[in-house]
């Protein structure tokens, strides 16, 4: 929050123990609390949505079915027929990140996807899974991918390290992208909110000018809704692309 004339844009990402003494004892901060809230929200949405089991779905059931179809199509179209095996993983990943991004936009809430520890953990999970699947499906042939087909053997000392680095940069780019987008969005919202408070302290002219940052914040909120969905989508589609390369023979 803005105290006086300084803007503390990064204070919102600090972790504090929540839930009183119990949270203090367990070192339980907002981040895991919001993860649990996000998981419960997604599960409740699916459970309540699918409970009627109607042939002609109601609104909530239709929404739940669209979500299922959307990820199912993404997984099967991208990965191929084997994608059905990874559908639950991609579904969980997508809706966990989406719920985290969107819940983080609520007042007094916390976006756990804005912490690099969380996004690195998610990205490493995807990376390790894709490596395990590659090794299982392709065996030793997996390592042949690090030498581009058709390249002259003399260039191997140069090309192989570049390919390995490119491969290792996958989890880095996955995690940095999600974390950086969320941090940037929340910092911008905080900055413009602080401008409003600072301008409002200037008297009558300030009151009139303070409307500007509020208008910008409304627009930023729309942008954040787009970014939140887009980042979850990009994370999920990249997971599918990496898994497609893993299952390809």
């Amino acid at each position: 929050m803005a105290a006086g004339s300084t803007i503390d844009a990064l204070g919102q990402f600090e972790l504090h123990p929540v839930l009183g003494g119990l949270g203090e004892a367990l070192r339980f901060s907002q981040s895991p609390l919001m993860m649990i809230v996000a998981s419960v929200a997604v599960l409740a949405f699916l459970y309540v949505g699918m409970r009627p089991k109607a042939v002609v779905p109601g609104r909530l059931q239709a929404a739940a079915e669209i979500c299922y179809d959307f990820i199912h199509n993404m997984a099967v179209d991208t990965i191929g027929p084997e994608g059905r095996a990874f559908f639950p993983f991609v579904f969980t990943l997508f809706f966990f990140i989406l719920a985290g991004n969107y819940l983080g936009l609520l007042p007094f809430s916390f976006a756990f996807t804005s912490h690099v520890a969380v996004t690195v953990a998610l990205a490493l999970m995807v990376f390790v899974l894709s490596v395990i699947v590659s090794l299982k499906v392709q065996g030793a042939k997996f390592f042949a991918h690090f030498m581009p087909a058709g390249a002259p053997m003399a260039l191997a000392p140069l090309l192989v390290p570049i390919e390995i680095l490119s491969f290792l940069s996958r989890p880095v780019s996955l995690s940095i992208r999600l974390f950086a987008n969320m941090v940037a969005g929340h910092v911008m919202l905080e900055m413009f909110a602080a401008f409003t408070i600072m301008l409002a302290g200037l008297g009558l002219i300030g009151d009139a000018l303070a409307v500007g940052p509020v208008v910008i914040n409304v627009a930023l909120m729309a942008l954040e809704l787009l970014v939140g969905a887009l980042q979850a989508y990009v994370f999920a589609i990249l997971t599918c692309i990496y898994l497609r390369e893993a299952v390809a023979h």
Partner: peptide, 20 residues
Amino acid sequence: MTTVGTVLRAGTEMVAGLVV
């Protein structure tokens, strides 16, 4: 969606290689 996603990806892909 895919186009916007691609644009957003390009920058981080480049930085990620350098970071690693």
